[in-house]
Simulated scan of single mutants.
Amino acid sequence: MILIISGNKEITTTEVIKWLLRMGKNFIRVYEDEIFEIKTKEKKIYLESYRNSFFIDDITSVWYRRGKLKFKRLRYANESINHSMNEYQHWLEDYIKKTLESKKHINKESNSDVNKLLVLEQARKVGLDIPEYFLASNTDQVVLGKTIIKTIGGNPRVEAISKDSSGMMYTTVINEFEKEDFYITFFQEKIEKDFEIRSFYLNGKIWSTAIFSQNDEQTKIDFRKYNNKKPNRNVPYTLPKNIERKVHRLMLSLDLNCGSLDFIKSGNKYYFLEVNTVGQFLGLSVICNYSLEKEIADYL
């Protein structure tokens, strides 16, 4: 039995499930609004929600796509008992999650949020080129027009201030100094690019796509500012073998067996930017005819 932990309206998950159905495989899709009760049957741990129920021993492989496995906790009127029971229930939940992660899997809930600073340090250790970066609480050391600002975390979203705004925090070039200090922020050298590369990694295999975003003012700094009227040209691409080997070493060092990695091609160099464990890859899979949804289904 395959266990899939995903968002309620996550299209990529649905496309993988279509392949599983075609293959005749049994699976359970756990949605983000599901809450499981932990039970026992026949001396085995059994999970049950309003939609699904299964023995954890029956799960053979797990795909952590998004969301998390949630549990209903028992509560007692006596706060002393309640505190102790919360601790006991935590350890049982931890056992269940670790048991599921020990099975054949694609990604894990426990390390789905990678730390960009640690990732960049590891990338440098395995020999990948990365743009120079620094942390600062002011713009005193910034070279205007040649420094960008990015989030330290993944891709946080803020509430959109208008219907025409997505609320996405995009990469931005610093063109003026700030008068006051602010919270410690991630600054990075702006690399003049030939094009961008998005690579999808799965258990040692890599599929890459060249994204010609630099030809459009709207997308030249951050290709996620999609121009729907005139989309960027995307074509299949193959990274040099020495870069692919370094990517493999990086993913092993991060204990990740799946993810989307971003690069900038500039002259003879390939600059590594980041890895997103739950990044979108469906669009590029379709454009490049990679059938990554089938690759995931085959692996599961």
Rank of each mutant, 00 (worst) to 15 (best):
F177A: 04
D181R: 01
D181L: 01
F182V: 00
Y183W: 00
I184T: 06
I184C: 00
F186L: 05
K193I: 07
K193W: 07
F200H: 11
Y201A: 03
L202F: 11
K205Q: 12
W207S: 12
W207G: 13
W207N: 15
S208E: 04
T209N: 12
A210C: 08
Q214P: 00
Q214Y: 00
Q214D: 06
D216L: 04
Q218F: 01
R224I: 03
R224W: 09
N227C: 02
N227E: 01
K229G: 06
N232W: 09
N232V: 09
N234D: 08
Y237L: 04
P240N: 12
N242M: 02
N242D: 15
I243A: 04
E244P: 02
R245H: 07
R245W: 00
K246C: 02
V247Y: 08
V247N: 01
V247L: 15
H248E: 08
H248T: 04
L252M: 11
S253R: 08
S253Q: 11
S253V: 05
L254I: 08
L256I: 12
C258P: 01
C258N: 14
S260Q: 06
D262A: 13
D262T: 06
F263H: 05
S266W: 04
S266V: 00
S266L: 02
K269M: 06
K269Q: 15
L273A: 05
L273G: 12
E274Q: 11
V275C: 13
V278S: 15
F281C: 12
F281I: 12
G283N: 15
L284G: 15
L284A: 15
S285A: 06
C288H: 11
C288A: 14
N289M: 02
Y290S: 05
Y290L: 05
Y290Q: 06
Y290N: 06
E293Y: 00
